[in-house]
Design a protein around this nucleic acid. Sequence first.
DNA 1: TTTATTCATTGCAATATTACAATATTAAAT
DNA 2: ATTTAATATTGTAATATTGCAATGAATAAA
Lengths: 121, 121
Amino acid sequence: MGATKTEYFTDRQNELAVLIKALGHPARIAIIDYLLKTEKCICGDIVNELPLAQPTVSQHLKELKNAGIIKGSVDGNAICYCIDDEVWHKFKGYLNGFFNTYDLKKNKCCYTNIKPKNIDL
Amino acid sequence: MGATKTEYFTDRQNELAVLIKALGHPARIAIIDYLLKTEKCICGDIVNELPLAQPTVSQHLKELKNAGIIKGSVDGNAICYCIDDEVWHKFKGYLNGFFNTYDLKKNKCCYTNIKPKNIDL
DNA sequence: TTTATTCATTGCAATATTACAATATTAAAT
DNA sequence: ATTTAATATTGTAATATTGCAATGAATAAA
């Protein structure tokens, strides 16, 4: 035990979980924030921007890269990291499916619609 | 060391990371999938739907509840879980900010635009 | 009031994540 | 060739997550 049982879930569920999980840390949100707001996607700039040591940032970049969300290219002495267009749009599509489904459903939940007298936990 | 340094990040980065992290597991994606597709949001139905033992599902439900994504109400002998409308929309708003920013940016990344001759890692 | 039923909690083992110092690697500059 | 600069990797400690059997708590049914 201890390891996620990915074999029991659908490909979509696993793929989406990998992408979402990779974003599920404030440092990695901060990295994406930075890549979205600046033209400078050099690793050293990201390291300077974040309040973490260089190896820690490198590790977070690696996780984002493993999930496919960012990609890196050699730029002389430095590494340039940027968002992977294809993966980003796939990710966006998955999430749109999620959130649009909810809108269609119009929150027909038992708490608000079926059992109004129930006690909130 | 070992624990996330939340104090160094913005409230938005931390809040978003908590929401995203809570979704970052295929079982929890599956739970939300189920809540989105059915009217029956009874805990036991979720347990039957998932390929995991009851205590494990209970724990996943607890994590989604702790993050605020779902809420539960007592329904006699059972517990009814459903998506929290307010949190869900806040979540959606955060994510829209993310993905719309990228569209505006039009992927002006060093790899594709600035340094076309670089080698992909 | 027993006896089910439903769900949560506890306790535990396995595994994964987070963080960083120290070190390695690679390319640029001298 | 040596040194410098940028980034990755390794090793390690602390912490968190995943999963489940066993047990507990609360309500419903008998």
